[in-house]
């Protein structure tokens, strides 16, 4: 440590706890969530009551499951535009098989899962084999699934929805597990919230504490370099697409069991909301950086705004304006934070 130590001395910038905190990708989302909560909670007593919290945590949960999966995929450097419509596809499969073909609800869900994973595998294989941008590949899958959802539903029922899941065989047990409610302090919380917390916890563990997590950051941050040190880049990306498909199946099943019917156009337009939540949560559009917890918090912001606007009696049309403003603010904040964090050098 001869001259090196001397050289380091003159440049030592104390990396204090503050900066350490600031370089977390979730920071922007946490600050945003606190601000949004404070705003609505100060304006509306219902919003800050326990039933109110249960109310706005519900949309946060179903969106959050997707946003977390999309966040992993985006950290791995890819997009999936077919994720939204896939929630519709899996729901339609579940309801159609259970009501029209007398299949057990659990078995119908299994079929839905197999189909979803197959679509994820298809997306992953095309992207990794052809090196085409996933934006285009999954846009293709998105449109194809949209057509299939409508076409098949119309051909089978003559309408654009399938319904009647309530009377299907095995509905009650599946409903309890995926669409039930839990009473806490007089408020009924959707069980989807637990699924969301579970998905977030598992995703965070994988990202931060598993070898595969290291590979996800690596394939998104520099695929060539990752390959050069022996990271199975293609396998990692395919697994990420299949994870997104799995999440779409989970959310599709939860919603189908909750409402007992599925519209053929459900999920369309949601794919960008997932991406927005992931970006608010600190994911870079270019990949290699982000957080699962951040995406989950991004979903909370979405849920709070979605219901908060209703609680305040505002026109719900303002929600989209709010979402856009949040997205812009979050990306600007993330950019500033990252710059600040990286100027440690020199």
């Amino acid at each position: 440590m001869t001259a090196t130590a001397g050289r380091a001395d003159e440049r030592v910038a104390e990396v204090g706890p503050l900066r350490r905190l600031l370089i977390r990708p979730e920071l922007g989302a946490v600050v945003g969530a606190v601000v949004v909560f404070a705003f609505f909670a100060s304006q509306s007593a219902v919003f800050r009551s326990l039933p109110g919290i249960a109310n706005w945590l519900d949309p946060a949960a179903t969106l959050g499951i997707m946003a977390v999966a999309i966040a992993l995929l985006m950290i791995g450097g890819e997009f999936d535009l077919s994720a939204g419509v896939m929630t519709g596809t899996t729901g339609l499969i579940l309801v159609t098989l259970a009501t029209r073909y007398g299949m057990n609800v659990w078995a119908a869900m299994l079929v839905g899962l197999v189909v979803a994973l197959a679509v994820g595998l298809f997306n992953g294989l095309i992207v990794t084999r052809t090196r085409l941008p996933s934006f285009i590949v999954t846009l293709g899958t998105f449109l194809m699934l949209q057509g299939v959802n409508l076409g098949v539903t119309k051909a089978l029922t003559g309408t654009v929805q399938v319904s009647g899941l309530r009377t299907a065989w095995g509905f009650d047990s599946a409903h309890t597990v995926f669409a039930g409610t839990i009473q806490i302090g007089g408020a009924s919380f959707r069980v989807a919230i637990l699924w969301w917390l579970l998905v977030t916890a598992v995703a965070t563990w994988v990202l931060m504490r598993s070898r595969q997590g290291n590979w996800i950051f690596a394939v998104g941050g520099g695929e060539q370099a990752a390959r050069a040190v022996g990271v199975p880049a293609a396998r990692t990306k395919i697994a990420l697409f299949m994870t997104t498909a799995f999440a779409a199946w989970l959310v599709g099943s939860i919603l189908a069991l909750r409402y007992t019917s599925v519209q053929a156009n459900v999920g369309i337009g949601q794919e960008f909301i997932y991406i927005i939540a992931a970006v608010i949560g600190g994911c870079l559009l270019t990949g290699g950086y982000g957080s699962a917890i951040g995406a989950a918090i991004g979903a909370v912001i979405f849920g709070m705004a979605d219901k908060g606007i209703v609680f305040l009696g505002w026109d719900a049309d303002w929600f989209m304006f709010f979402l856009g403003a949040m997205l812009l603010l979050a990306t600007l904040a993330n950019r500033l934070v990252r710059r600040y964090a990286e100027e440690v050098k020199h």
Partner: peptide
């Protein structure tokens, strides 16, 4: 020359990239 390193990843994550030490199922961080 190009070093095969990922700029956005931390030094220790880069150091073990592709040869991560295991601990049970996970990565012995």
């Amino acid at each position: 020359q190009d070093l095969a390193m990922i700029p956005l990843m931390s030094v220790w994550r880069n150091f073990f990239l592709g040869s991560e030490p295991r601990k049970g199922l996970g990565f012995d961080v």
